[in-house]
């Protein structure tokens, strides 16, 4: 029986077809053999499924969107903390990380809420637009990329790139262009939505592989599990995946974490080319939604993250089961209108 009691607040309860990582993180935490974890859900929307999963989430509170600003979020967390006495907070969305990284010292000092997040520098330098510099700085291969600011620059791209190219927005969206005309078309479409610059990246042929990893902030990799997606939804999300044996990929991961002293969880999206080269496509500075595969394969990253947040020393995982699979499924919960009413009008359930 786990003995040590701890209260953990978790965001990302949107366990939908493009899921947030909250529920899998919670499952990992509840699997802990050492800790008796009480979960406080933090939600942005009254229809996030996790709100209604009472066997996993003891109580959920609505919180203001990241765009409302730190002052609003702090005030809400103060209120929640006065009721629930939170020990650790685990934010799981890209969009909320900036605020939480900024708030982390104040949360700990004033409210006693601990967290274990990347530093602001790490968070900033792994942005898509900076990925080339990031790769160069930490010795990781990154597909050649360039920021462009107008369609006039597309004509001269062939000096450094060969089609197809990936046309990417600053924050979101990416399309593969096979001709300058297509590139211009995507430039206009994506820039209209996300603004400038547009990032042009050399398309790399190969297989996408992903790693979920956890760094201790001193350069040590606490855990790392590589996975290949087996079924992909139309939103590009894994619907089934399998753990891989890939020492080279693990070496790259350890190198990146060692050189960058990465703190907290991250997901590396890599392309393995047919020649066996690895290119880093993107780093997500948080736990991926498929994290429960790592737990199932023997590395409970959420639990390790909790321990590090609590200031405990955590021994790196040395093993995971190769060939473990996850198969995602959807499930219709039956809920009462009364519950929807409560979370909608009172902001807590």
């Amino acid at each position: 029986m786990p003995s040590k009691k701890v209260t953990v607040a978790v965001t990302g309860l949107n366990n939908v077809d493009s899921p947030g990582p909250g529920i899998p993180v919670i499952r990992g935490l509840l699997d802990s053999k050492e800790y008796d974890v009480r979960i406080i859900g933090l939600s942005y929307d009254a229809l996030e499924p996790g709100i209604y999963m009472h066997e996993l989430v003891a109580k959920t509170y609505q919180i203001p969107l990241p765009s409302a600003g730190i002052a609003s979020i702090m005030e809400r967390l103060k209120h929640i903390n006065s009721v629930e006495k939170i020990d650790v907070i685990i934010p799981n969305f890209d969009a909320e990380l900036y605020n939480f990284i900024k708030m982390a010292p104040v949360l700990e000092k004033e409210l006693g809420i601990k967290s274990f997040l990347p530093t602001m520098e790490q968070f900033e330098e792994r942005h898509k637009a900076n990925l080339s510099d990031f790769g160069e700085k930490y010795g990781i291969k990154v597909p050649k990329s360039k920021m462009i600011f107008s369609t006039a620059e597309i004509a001269s791209l062939t000096k450094d790139f060969t089609y197809p190219l990936v046309v990417k927005g600053k924050f979101y969206d990416a399309s593969v262009a096979y001709s300058p005309e297509q590139a211009a078309q995507y430039f206009n479409k994506i820039s209209a939505k996300w603004g400038l610059p547009i990032i042009i990246q050399q398309f790399t042929y190969g297989t996408e592989v992903n790693v979920t990893a956890l760094g201790d902030g001193n350069g040590n990799t606490i855990g790392a599990v590589p996975m290949r997606k087996q079924v992909i939804t139309d939103k590009g999300k894994a619907w089934a995946g399998i753990t891989l044996e890939d020492e080279e990929l693990l070496n790259i991961t350890r190198k990146l974490i060692r050189n960058s002293k990465w703190r907290g969880p991250c997901e590396l999206e890599m392309i393995k080319t047919n020649d066996g080269e690895y290119f880093l496509i993107e780093i997500n500075p948080r736990t991926p939604a498929w994290i429960y595969l790592a737990v199932g394969a023997g590395q409970n990253h959420p639990e390790a993250l909790l321990k590090m947040a609590l200031g405990e020393k955590v021994k790196p995982f040395e093993h995971y089961d190769i060939g473990k699979m996850f198969i995602r499924y959807s499930y219709d919960m039956i809920c009462d209108l009364k519950e929807f009413e409560t979370i909608s009008t009172l902001g807590e359930l």
Binding site: L337, E341, T342, T345, L346
Partner: peptide, 8 residues
């Protein structure tokens, strides 16, 4: 109508 101001 509910006391919390919820209308359905």
């Amino acid at each position: 109508l509910s006391d919390t101001g919820f209308v359905f």
